[in-house]
Amino acid sequence: MAEPLDLPTQPPDAKPFPTSQPQDETPHGRPERPAAEEEDDQCAEVDSGLRFAQGDCIGIHVPPACPDAMALDWDAEHPRSDRIRVQEFTCACQPIFYEFCQSGGLFFIRRTRTSDGNVLIEETPRLQRKIAKALWSRLLKGAAY
């Protein structure tokens, strides 16, 4: 039987892992987000965060659109590729839910609307990740619809 190798557990110049968290960080190691200041903007109340559902729901609930929200360009679903990867999604318990999707190196938002058993699927145009992610963020804050 071969003898076990004697491997070092850490490189010789490694610093010890801190056992306590700095006070300005959350338990997840992310910096604490400063409290939102009051603004005159009507969307300020939904900008602070996303509502996660209670009970059986597993996704984010999108807040209602603000009065000055940006209208997104929605087109009928056109399957343009064999595979679509859903990166993020909102809760499907709502009559309208959204998916942030990737396909062929481009990104888009898919909107699914259900009403009386009918399902309508619409998509934004395919975009670069940075632009699509900005639209997704606005949608989740109620600043786009």
Rank of each mutant, 00 (worst) to 15 (best):
A14V: 04
P16C: 10
F17V: 14
S20N: 10
P22H: 02
Q23I: 10
D24E: 10
E25Y: 15
T26E: 11
P27Q: 13
R30H: 05
P31Y: 09
E32Y: 07
E32H: 08
P34E: 11
A35S: 08
A36L: 14
A36S: 13
E37Q: 14
E38M: 14
E38N: 09
E39N: 05
D40L: 15
D40F: 05
D41K: 08
D41L: 13
Q42P: 08
Q42W: 06
A44M: 02
A44G: 01
A44V: 12
V46A: 01
D47E: 10
D47S: 02
S48A: 13
S48T: 14
L50E: 07
L50N: 03
L50K: 04
F52R: 12
Q54M: 09
Q54G: 08
Q54V: 14
Q54K: 12
D56M: 05
C57G: 14
C57D: 12
C57Q: 15
G59L: 00
G59C: 02
P63K: 11
C66G: 02
P67T: 07
D68V: 08
D68I: 04
A69G: 01
A69K: 07
M70Y: 05
A71V: 05
A71L: 12
L72K: 04
L72Q: 01
L72N: 04
D75Y: 06
P79D: 06
P79R: 12
P79M: 06
P79N: 11
